[in-house]
Design a protein around this nucleic acid. Structure first.
Lengths: 197, 197
DNA sequence: GCTCGTGATGTCAGTTGCTGTCATCAACTA
DNA sequence: TAGTTGATGACAGCAACTGACATCACGAGC
């Protein structure tokens, strides 16, 4: 065993989510989070740029999943189909972590500063998606618009998903709202609503 | 004349934009802004919730313009047409303040924290647009999707507009990029790209 | 086995954003 | 004339965040 317990980063993430849930984001101090994780405040800021970032450690992996799915879409797929496929795959990943996602989302929507951070992550995701489309030969502004629209669909669908009842621990699996399905429906709805212009 | 010069809020807004332009957002302290405006730091925080908000004083008026345009769209207009009309009208307003908009935008894109703030303003705008659509009897999720897609178009079009050369002070008015026109084209492009799904 | 880097952490001082509280003073009201 | 109101100043204080330096286990190479 080393001088310090390994996994400080993970402990900080867990401690932060707990404290933000228990007493709210603003009421929880970084010193408290660090203490609960068994490190000092300075170590917190070595792992995370600021007090908000500790809730967004997984966004990099999610972005890679999005981008690789777009890149691997069949050549015959239209830009919007490639984007929709990526959003659906990501939705499937969230589906498996429903309770965690809801818990985290509840903390985020309760604080404007955290909402801001989430939004910039999504915009960064949209930019990465647009890049991936350009790699496929899609020109601008179609690439940007398809990516932005796809993220808008993701936001709306995710919001509906977390808002619906149903527990992932429920004995009846048919109770669990199906995020990929909601995403598909939302893409269809977007198609319908834009066609009406 | 009173005890103090009136218009402290406006002076703070001008001083802040100047200082953020001159030396960058993070390098400028609130104390400096306040000093340049001839007030104390405490007075700054009485007018603006935080150091970022001083750049977003006009967002309320913009939102009202968006919402009232949607509300006043003809009954025959589809949801997307109502949204497009609102975005175009707002684009016309920005068109008249091109230099200010570019200057302000340059400051914002240079700092992640300011980008975050701008994004949450746009999301709040999308929420207000969705509300206005529901007032017109549009059901969810169509209302949310149309609003979000409209804001996505606005973002993409605005980005293109500020990125193009051309000075509003140019002698040849045909040099000035036309934001409402770019917005119309972007809506058409969105229609095309979503139809391809 | 010894030395020496390396990397993650601790320690501490300092700046700055932001808040609570109370005092001040001109303009307005009665 | 007296009281009220509203915007501001003055000041203390907390917490987020940063820079600089010390510490100490571990592994590489000798």
């Amino acid at each position: 065993m080393g001088r310090w317990e390994p996994g400080a980063r993970g402990r900080l993430e867990r401690a932060a989510l707990e404290l933000y849930s228990e007493r709210g984001f603003e009421q929880a101090t970084v010193a408290e989070i660090a203490a609960r994780a068994g490190v000092t405040e300075r170590t917190f800021f070595r792992h995370f740029a600021d007090k908000r970032e500790v809730l967004f450690g997984g966004s990099g992996a999610l972005q890679e999943l999005f981008v690789s799915t777009v890149a691997e879409a069949p050549e015959s797929a239209t830009p919007m189909e490639a984007i929709a496929a990526a959003v659906e795959v990501a939705g499937g990943l969230l589906q498996e972590r429903r309770e965690f996602a809801r818990r985290r989302h509840a903390v985020i929507i309760a604080n404007p500063g955290l909402r801001e951070r989430e939004l910039i992550k999504l915009v960064s995701l949209a930019a990465a998606l647009a890049d991936a489309l350009r790699e496929r030969g899609v020109a601008d502004p179609a690439a940007s618009l398809a990516a932005e629209a796809g993220i808008a669909v993701f936001r709306v669908a995710f919001e509906r998903w977390v808002g619906e009842p149903g527990q992932s621990g429920s004995p009846d699996l048919s109770d669990v709202p199906d995020l990929p399905k909601i995403i598909r429906e939302s893409f269809d709805e977007l198609k319908a609503v834009t066609a009406g212009k």
